[in-house]
Structure formats: C-alpha cells, structure tokens
C-alpha cells in the first residue's frame, strides 16, 4: 500500500551520532516533550512524523539548541552528540550549530546575493583563508545543494529572487557550506510544489552520504520515500522508533497504525 523504498538498509556504518535520553521540554507550564529517548545514526536519514503539535519540530530544535532563543523554553535530560552533552554549560551553542546545521520550513534566504548567502556561514566561522578558498567553498556547497548549474551565472543576484524550490535548495547549500556533521530539516518541503519537492528529496538522499540527516515531515509518503529510520511522535511522546520499512508495514503501536492509515492526525 505504500511505496516503500526497495533499497534494503545499508548494513555498513551505523554508528550512533546523536543520543537523546529522557528528554523533557517545557514551554512555560506546558510540558511539550515527555521522556523522549532516541538514537540517531550516521549516514542515515531519520524522519520524525506525527500529527501537528506532537512535538516533533520542538524536539528537532532541541538538537541544535535553537530553542535557546525562546525565553520560556526549558530542556531537561541528556542529548549527546559524539558523546558530548550539548546542554553542558561548557558547550557554546554557536559552535554546536556550526556542527549541527538546520534547514527551515519556509525557505529563508538572507536579503543578500546568492554568493553572500552561501559565504555567510564560512565567513563567520573563519573557514576560508582567502577569496579563492571562499569561492571554492561556495561552489562546492552549491554543487552539493544541486543548484550550481542553475545559479552559477548569477551568483551576485539576490537570493530572494529565486523560485521557492531554488530558494530551499539554496538554504540547504547554505547549511552544507559550514561543513556540518548533522543536518536538521524542519518540514523542508511544506512550502514547495511537487516538482521542487521531488528535487529536494533527491538531494536529501544524496546528502545522506556525508551527514546524519534528521527530517521532520508531515507527509508519510515523504518519510517513506526518503528515510531509513522513522520516529513517530504523538502528544509529546515518542511512540515508536524503528526502521522505516518496519514502521510502515508492521507498526507495533496501535497509535502508529492509526496515524499511518489516516485515522488520526
């Protein structure tokens, strides 16, 4: 009934990149995430699915401490990346976010040129010693974002002038440019049309070669198409976490089954 990817799970490297244990998130008095424990693997696309308001985006934003920018948000429990607790006092969120890049729901290019959009991250992190190196980084990021051919002749044009799908790939290239190890994507295709969505999905599959990718999505088909692992969230709880094929063919929890068959959500 679902178009399950035929490629069988790669058995090669499946070392754990992110390990979350008993994570609780509160917005003021509201307990938004309850007791979530999850292990996210390298070179894998992990999908977070669940109905609106189930906490999947909130949990995603915990992984690079984007929730720090919200005053009333409080996070408890441990989230380890390569064994380091990212909520440790000694961890600088700025350094963390360079390592854990993020792509957002709506494409949000800066009101700058395409080149400056990509070069922004490398510049603030001091990744290039000179202009030539920076050019190289920009080109590599744009190629990896699968948008190089479309924009190579107009790198100085404003990023806001691109189409929606191009903008989102630009934002992915921008995130990639800082050489992150983990890429978080918060419903990256929700503002895109089907053709642009297909392009971005293809890109996500390629990115898996180099990064641990975590994607939040509303669309179960999308989760089935792009991910190897799927986590189902419901009302702030992590209901089920398993290989994507397992979740979609043989869910353990009745809530998961209800959701993927369209009875809740």
């Amino acid at each position: 009934m679902y178009d399950i990817p035929h490629q069988i799970q790669e058995t090669a490297v499946t070392d754990v990149k992110i390990k979350a244990k008993d994570v609780q998130v509160y917005y003021g008095d509201n307990h938004a995430i309850k007791d979530v424990s999850v292990e996210i693997e390298n070179n894998t696309v992990t999908a977070f699915i669940g109905p609106s308001g189930c906490g999947k985006s909130t949990f995603l934003r915990c992984l690079n401490r984007m929730n720090d920018t919200i005053d009333i948000c409080r996070v408890e429990g441990d989230i380890l990346i390569d064994g380091d607790d990212i909520y440790d006092k000694r961890v600088d969120p700025v350094q963390l976010r360079a390592k854990v890049g993020m792509v957002f729901q709506k494409p949000n290019p800066f009101p700058k040129s395409i080149y400056d959009n990509i070069a922004y991250g490398p510049r603030i992190h001091g990744m290039a010693r000179n202009k030539a190196e920076l050019d190289e980084i920009v080109e590599r990021a744009l190629r990896r974002g699968a948008i190089w051919d479309e924009v190579k002749d107009r790198l100085q044009a404003p990023g806001t002038g691109l189409s929606g799908g191009q903008q989102q790939r630009l934002c992915i290239a921008r995130a990639v440019a800082t050489e992150p190890e983990v890429l978080l994507m918060d419903e990256p295709c929700s503002a895109l049309d089907p053709i642009a969505t297909a392009q971005v999905e293809e890109l996500i599959d390629e990115l898996r070669q180099n990064y641990a990718v975590v994607i939040v999505t509303h669309s179960m088909q999308q989760a089935a198409r792009v991910s190897q692992k799927t986590a189902f969230f419901h009302l702030g709880n992590l209901v089920e976490y398993d290989d994507t094929s397992e979740i979609f063919t043989n869910p353990e929890d009745s809530r998961t089954e209800s959701y993927i068959t369209g009875r809740i959500g």
């Binding site: 920018t69 350094q95 890049g101 993020m102 957002f104 949000n108 290019p109 800066f110 922004y120 603030i124």
Partner: peptide, 27 residues
Amino acid sequence: VPQAMRDGSYGLGATQSETIRQVVLPA
C-alpha cells in the same frame, strides 16, 4: 524583520550580534 531570517542565521551557528549586524540590520 521576519524571525525566519534570524533563525536561518542562528541555524548556521552565527552569534546574536553577527546575526544582527549581518542579517537583521542589512534587511
């Protein structure tokens, strides 16, 4: 200036002042 603009910058690991000077103020 939309919050998405700031989020984009924080998501890349920019500090708040870098975000303000290089993204918010130009916008």
